[in-house]
């Protein structure tokens, strides 16, 4: 069983990064390389952390370890829920007009556009056209989009890292070295 957990930790720690890199699954437009690369790097670091601390981890009693794993899984699910919510807020897809990457919060021209489109980011694209919305977003300070990306990136990698840690911790607990 421990081998299964360790194999799963390896899979969760290494495969998603490459998959995200290739497919751009759940990433903002044109950001599959950044998100995939970061997930890959954090997955590797998570596995390395587990390996470095394997001796200490083996000493933790099983009930406490179970608790840690449950916390990690719950955290993973909570982060996934938050990410899906934020993704829906920031990456707005219009069937005909294309996809726009909005910042977490808006101000100036883009805020006015959204307000006049019944406070809907989707209807702002419908009402004014995708390029009008993109131009208005570009008029906001560049830091706003950067902060949005950093926030999404942090949550995105944490989803995979917590899952890697959960599987890895279970594997190590079964007293099998990595």
């Amino acid at each position: 069983m421990n081998k299964v957990f360790l194999a799963l930790a390896g899979v969760v720690g290494s495969i998603p990064g490459i998959a995200v890199w290739q497919s751009g699954l759940g990433t903002p437009p044109n950001m599959n390389l950044l998100f995939g690369g970061v997930v890959q790097a954090f997955g590797a670091i998570s596995l390395l952390l587990l390996w470095v601390n394997r001796a200490k981890l083996k000493l933790i009693p099983k009930p406490k370890m179970t608790k840690i794993v449950v916390y990690l899984i719950v955290t993973c699910f909570a982060l996934l829920s938050i990410y899906l919510w934020l993704f829906g807020l920031t990456v707005v897809q219009h069937e005909v007009r294309g996809t726009t990457y909005y910042p977490l919060w808006t101000s100036g021209e883009i805020a006015t556009m959204i307000e006049s489109a019944d406070n809907s980011r989707y209807y702002a694209i419908e009402k004014y056209g995708i390029d009008a919305v993109k131009e208005a977003i570009h008029k906001m300070p560049a830091a706003v989009i950067a902060i949005t990306t950093i926030f999404l990136l942090f949550i995105y990698q944490a989803i995979f890292s917590t899952l890697t840690l959960a599987f890895g911790v279970l594997g190590i607990q079964e007293k099998l070295s990595l």
């Binding site: 950044l34 990457y101 131009e135 977003i137 830091a143 989009i145 990136l153």
Partner: peptide, 14 residues
């Protein structure tokens, strides 16, 4: 570095 990458990577095409 991360902040700069995030600023640069977002190239929205019009």
């Amino acid at each position: 570095t991360l902040f700069s990458i995030c600023c640069i990577v977002y190239v929205s095409s019009c």
